[in-house]
Design a protein around this nucleic acid. Structure first.
Length: 904
RNA sequence: GCACGCGUGGCCAAAACGGCAAAGGCGCCGGUCUUAGAAACCGGAUAUUGAAGGUUCGAAUCCUUCCGCGUGUACCA
């Protein structure tokens, strides 16, 4: 054993050993399984610290579960379709496939140098025909079941990326990739019917263990709201219509969606989206002024909007009238810019007294405001005097007033009864609407899975035959970056015989959104080489669902909704038997770093840290930062500002994982990343922090080095039954007893922490344990048998518990102390056994307070009765000083913790 | 604007049910070693837990208000 810890040597040795022994390759067996999954990376060519964090966490869990006796499936693959490959092709003229394959190769090397315990034989890559064949297979299955369909719509279009975006990808009106505003464009698109599963997507979240914020975002995204459709009959009044127009549309009704049918007596108008069909149908009846206004609203709404921009209410009275079916009142029909055709029916009843938007609208256009819901205790007032003027809209539930026979009902009751009334009278029904839209999957891109559809003049839209899959991407498509489908320019691809009639036909030239690939990749890992099916359902039955999924929360609505949708569709195809793919989800925070910049010119100019001189005060707080003199213009001291920002090359605060591994070792890098902050928090990268991780590993190493010769005399060292008889812990010295106590407390602490997905606290626990081993000051030469055993037990446990965080070092140390050459994984070593009797002290310290202030401590057995503790506390000398001559009001005893004496 | 989350030494952070005088790491200070520094090792100091009220025998932990920060979201009827 080397006296010092050399990370490179240890890591090389164990990476080689693991590979040779196929240590992490698994197959179905008798053990309980654990499926540990991390979000697969896009093969950009470079790993960044965010990946390191994600995969270090996953690897820690994988190791922990292995030590706990599970058969752990821990795979990795490549999300290798997507835009950057195309960009590289356009910019540098490289072949996207070759570019992608090379990147995969280099990133795999980076992952291996980190020593991540993946089963490499299970890798999948989305861009390979063996994989995307099954994208197409699924697409056809969905097509058969009506879950894939084509329609012409306004799609979200990013001018910068020249790409269509799904609703999820255009959230907030900004492109998810480049952050630029999104515009609208009319295109024929393929859609997957995510809305068919809207209720399940919402309701099944009750059964999964996910972070609250992700669940909330999905819930908001699906946006189910329950209410009612209510029909308003449209009338055209003579006065509002140009004289030329004679026709009075008969039987035209406007259906509005409302969640507050109880407020219907307060409606002052029906407001329509500018593109509402009823508006379109009556265009010829509107005055030029009205038409101009409507067109202006349409034009305005298709413009890109800045994030956070408030759009002022606008609208126009069309002159049409609609009849409130409850009150019979005739209401004006307006067009309003705040009503969206995409939601509900594109028509709302405007109730200004009880809705903020309607309130604003009514205020702007001077429409009447009538209160029909009252706070319960004010109901009486509303009936004895005129409605009091509201100062703000009253949007809460309450009691109905000014609503004919419904007066006095609560909002809750009225909603139910009025909906029922509308139903029985044929002018409405209960209804549920969703914000969730179907998933637009067509992309006018090359680097994705071709959509397996053929257009035949004779037969129309024809699905490709299953036996013709995969529809392979041609290698020679011209890439122009103009936004047209590159595949359309490849005649050999486009021109094809119709699968149905054999006649001349054309292929669909759009490809699928790359989120299709990531919707089911975790099933392909189960059976990566299967050429007859996406995977064998029998394997899925053993390995899936995924037990623990880890990734960034930027995928909270996109990937995670699509993957859930896909699983439900697969379930209905009979491929899996569960509803949810990911039992437990963990979202890790960003890795950020300190940046230094000069913004005196109004623009931020960033400088890498090695060009910066930092001044600190006596406590170490940064007070000033300057551009290092040799890098600045002569004689000028340039003050710099500093901030904590997301790592990026342009800001000079990026950290290259390879470099960290080179300098400090993979173990230290991983240990630091796990220790520095709770996983879900931001992680601020400090170079000094990783040095601390190295110091800790060295500290453990030194301790093992000091003892390993002695341990080698023990026989059968892999278990706790050494020749040194294990004592029951009661007969040993105080020192060995205390050490064993710390060891067993740590065993429990680390176990509990890892089970609850905390990674920083168990590392702290291991640090405390090594500190305790040093602090015990036991020397190999002079130690008693008890002490030797206590040290051995502590070290062995420490090393095993270290494996999830620093596996290479743990393996090496384990071999050194136990002599086991097959290693931790190879020998199937288990997590150390916790013994509660040893973790508990036989005498514990009890704090004694007087009036809540700590005044003394007493020693007592953990089993001591409350009365005993009370008596002992009252008898305590220091306590008596404070209770002397005072009346004891009461004594509070917290078993095993403290006694509080309350005096007056 | 709305919703949610957070605020603990200079920094990152830990503390089941409210219960000891608030872990661990980084940084800082001192010492050993060294010609000196760095590294390494050893030792040390550092916190009325954002503010103000309240509940309680007892509050970092619960409640109220305020301040500060972060995230999500935007006319969803």
């Amino acid at each position: 054993m080397d006296e010092k810890y050399f990370s490179k040597k240890v890591e090389a040795k164990w990476q080689k050993r693991w590979a040779e022994t196929c240590a992490f390759e698994v197959a179905k067996d008798e053990r309980p399984k654990f499926y540990q999954l991390e979000m697969l990376p896009y093969p950009s060519g470079n790993l960044h610290m965010g990946h390191v964090r994600n995969y270090s966490v996953g690897d820690a869990i994988a190791w922990f579960k292995r030590l706990k006796g599970f058969n752990v499936l821990h795979p990795i693959g490549w999300d290798s379709f997507g835009q950057p490959a195309e960009d590289a092709a356009i910019k540098r003229g490289v072949n996207p496939r070759e570019w992608t394959e090379e990147n995969i190769k280099s990133m795999q090397g980076q992952l291996q140098r980190l020593g991540l315990s993946y089963d490499w034989l299970r890798q999948m890559a989305a861009h390979r025909p063996e994989y995307y064949k099954w994208d197409q297979w699924f697409f056809l299955k969905m097509y058969e079941r009506g879950l894939a369909y084509k329609k012409k719509t306004q799609v979200n279009w990013c001018e910068t990326d020249q790409a269509t975006l799904s609703n999820e990808q255009a959230s907030g009106g900004l492109c998810w990739r480049c952050g630029n505003p999104v515009t609208k464009k009319d295109l024929e698109q393929w859609f997957l019917k995510t809305t068919a599963y809207a209720d399940q997507l919402l309701d099944d979240m009750a059964d999964i263990d996910w972070p609250q914020n992700v669940i909330k975002r999905q819930r908001d995204w699906i946006g189910r709201s329950t209410g009612a459709y209510v029909n308003f009959e449209v009338r055209v009044t003579a006065s509002a219509v140009p004289a030329a127009s004679e026709e009075t549309p008969k039987g035209v009704t406007l259906t509005v969606f409302t969640t507050r049918i109880d407020t219907i007596y307060g409606a002052n108008a029906v407001v329509l989206a500018a593109t509402h069909p009823v508006v379109e149908a009556h265009r010829h009846q509107f005055s030029a002024e009205v038409l101009a206004k409507i067109d202006a609203i349409v034009a305005e709404s298709s413009k890109p909007k800045e994030l956070g921009e408030e759009v002022e209410k606008d609208g126009v009275d069309t002159g049409l009238k609609a009849v409130n079916p409850f009150s019979g009142e005739e209401l004006p029909v307006w067009v309003g810019n705040y009503v969206m055709m995409e939601y509900g029916t594109g028509a709302v009843m405007s109730v200004p007294a009880h809705d903020e938007r309607d309130w604003e609208f009514a205020k702007k256009f001077g429409l009447p405001i009538k209160q029909v819901i009252s706070e319960p205790h004010l109901t009486h007032e509303h009936h004895t005097m005129q409605a009091m003027a509201l100062e703000v809209p009253f949007v809460d539930y309450g009691v109905l007033v000014h609503s004919d026979s419904w007066n006095g009902k609560t909002s809750d009751d009225a909603k139910k009864e009025m909906t029922h009334y509308a139903e029985t009278h044929g002018f409405g029904e209960a209804a549920t609407t969703y914000r969730l839209r179907d998933w637009g999957v067509s992309r006018q891109r090359l680097w994705g899975s071709p959509i397996p559809i053929v257009y035949c003049d004779g037969c129309g839209v024809v699905p490709e035959k299953y036996e013709n899959l995969p529809v392979v991407l041609p290698d020679n498509a011209p890439m122009t970056g103009t936004g047209e489908s590159p595949l359309a320019k490849v005649p050999e691809f486009v021109n094809v015989a119709c699968p149905q009639c054999g006649g001349a036909a054309r292929r669909e030239t759009d490809t699928m959104d790359t989120f299709v690939d990531s919707s089911w990749y975790y099933y392909r890992y189960l059976d990566p080489n299967n050429s007859d099916a996406a995977f064998d359902p029998a394997l899925a039955e053993y390995w899936t669902p995924v037990d623990q999924y880890i990734g960034g929360d930027d995928h909270a609505v996109m990937h995670l909704i699509y993957a859930r949708f896909w699983t439900k569709a697969m379930r209905d195809l009979g491929l899996v038997k569960f509803d949810e793919p990911f039992r437990r989800l963990l979202t890790q925070g960003m890795v950020v770093g300190e940046t230094f910049f000069d913004d005196s010119t109004g623009k931020r100019r960033y400088f890498p840290p090695d060009q910066v001189t930092i001044e600190r005060d006596e406590k170490g707080k940064v007070v000033n930062a300057f551009l290092r003199s040799e890098d600045a213009d002569e004689g000028v001291r340039v003050p710099l500002k500093h901030a904590i920002e997301r790592m990026s090359k342009s800001k000079g605060n990026g950290v290259d994982p390879d470099e960290m591994v080179e300098i400090y070792g993979a173990d230290a890098a991983r240990l630091f990343v796990l220790f520095a902050a709770p996983v879900e928090n931001e992680l601020v990268w400090h170079e000094s922090g990783i040095e601390g991780a190295v110091r800790f590993l060295q500290r453990v190493w030194r301790f093992v080095y000091k003892w390993h010769a002695l341990f080698s005399e023990f026989k059968d060292r892999t278990t706790e039954n050494t020749e040194i008889t294990e004592k029951d812990g009661k007969t040993g010295t105080d020192i060995s007893k205390r050490l064993r106590q710390k060891t067993h407390q740590t065993i429990k602490r680390v176990d509990d922490s890892l089970s609850t997905l905390q990674f920083n606290t168990p590392v702290a626990g291991l640090m405390e344990l090594i500190n305790a081993l040093y602090d015990a000051k036991i020397e190999p030469e002079t130690a008693t048998d008890d002490e030797k055993f206590a040290v051995y037990e502590g070290v062995r446990a420490l090393v095993l518990m270290l494996a999830p965080f620093a596996p290479h070092a743990a393996e090496e140390l384990y071999e050194q102390i136990t002599g086991e050459t097959r290693g931790i994984v190879g020998s199937g070593a288990r997590y150390p056994e916790y013994r509660a009797d040893l973790a508990a002290a036989d005498e514990i310290e009890i704090a004694v307070q007087v009036n809540g202030k700590l005044r003394s401590r007493i020693m007592a057995s953990p089993e001591a009765a409350n009365e005993e503790l009370e008596a002992q506390a009252l008898a305590d000398e220091k306590v008596r000083e404070f209770t002397e001559g005072k009346e004891i009001v009461k004594v509070v005893v917290v078993p095993k913790r403290l006694v509080n004496v309350v005096v007056k």
